[in-house]
């Protein structure tokens, strides 16, 4: 079942791996966001976070479905989401971190939505019709996630003493997980060569510029890049939080594999 034990060589294998990585990012963050349901600070923000969670899971679903089709081994989106272990998940470590307080959730959403926006601006022109189609469809929703989280960063940063402290702490805590977003490993390089992957290293500059701009407006301090940066999510190396989360997320499907909505 593991996708880790073979290095993808053929175009289809690379595309499969690339799609699963993107899908894992979105499923894991979607699951984390869904933990806010019923716990939002106000009913309206509860709804907003649930909306974003559903969008994330929807994006993951589309990517998994296409990945399973490319793989052609009879697996479907549910197999990929519910029947792989933590070592098989390739999501960035940033996304599996517990939801924390609202400030942490918003800081992460802002950093990741901005990254996704820049990434999908490239992927919408991918040299693969179906993949490019998915990317441009999802881009509209990503734009909204970015707008929503950016507005919150501004309000929390330039808000009360407590909201300022909390969102600053959130950015400080999360910063060590941002390095991984721009690493180019073998799969990324091959995907770029094949014409459907983006040059992630190139995204770093516009990403950083926009983060600087927004945090500055929010009267926040951009954390120092010159610190320990976590890495390894793309090879299945995760923090202790992912396993617990998967146990909860996958339990029902694994215990009752044939369960259906009736």
């Amino acid at each position: 079942m593991s996708t880790l034990d073979k290095t993808p060589v053929k175009r289809d294998e690379i595309l499969f791996e690339y799609l699963v990585r993107l899908a894992d990012d979105r499923l894991i963050l979607g699951q984390r966001l869904s933990e806010w349901s019923g716990h939002g600070p106000e009913l309206e923000e509860d709804l907003a976070l649930a909306n974003i969670a559903l969008d994330m899971i929807g994006h993951a679903s589309g990517l998994y479905t296409y990945a399973a089709e490319i793989e052609g081994e009879g697996r479907d989106e549910d197999d990929l989401a519910y029947f792989r272990d933590d070592i098989d998940f390739k999501n960035f470590q940033m996304l599996e971190q517990p939801k924390g307080d609202l400030a942490y959730t918003i800081a992460r959403q802002f950093l990741f939505s901005l990254y996704s926006y820049l990434l999908y601006m490239e992927l919408k022109d991918a040299d693969d019709e179906q993949f490019a189609g998915l990317a441009s469809k999802h881009l509209k929703e990503i734009r909204y996630h970015l707008r929503h989280s950016r507005e919150w960063v501004l309000r929390l940063g330039d808000g009360t003493e407590e909201s300022h402290r909390r969102i600053q702490d959130a950015f400080d805590d999360i910063w060590m997980y941002t390095g991984e977003l721009f690493e180019m490993d073998e799969v990324d390089k091959k995907a770029a060569e094949e014409g459907f992957g983006a040059d992630l290293a190139k995204l770093r500059k516009p990403w950083k510029e926009h983060v600087d701009e927004v945090l500055d407006e929010a009267t926040l301090t951009v954390p120092d890049d010159n610190q320990y940066m976590a890495s390894g999510g793309r090879t299945g190396f995760h923090t202790e939080h992912l396993g617990h989360m998967l146990a909860q997320m996958q339990f029902l499907r694994r215990s009752y594999p044939d369960a259906e909505w009736t």
Binding site: E44, E45, L47, A48, N51, Y144, R147, H148, E151, R155
Partner: peptide, 12 residues
């Protein structure tokens, strides 16, 4: 505020 009201209205 107004901008967040617009976003909440969109989501709701």
């Amino acid at each position: 505020d107004a901008e967040m009201a617009l976003q909440n209205a969109r989501d709701t």
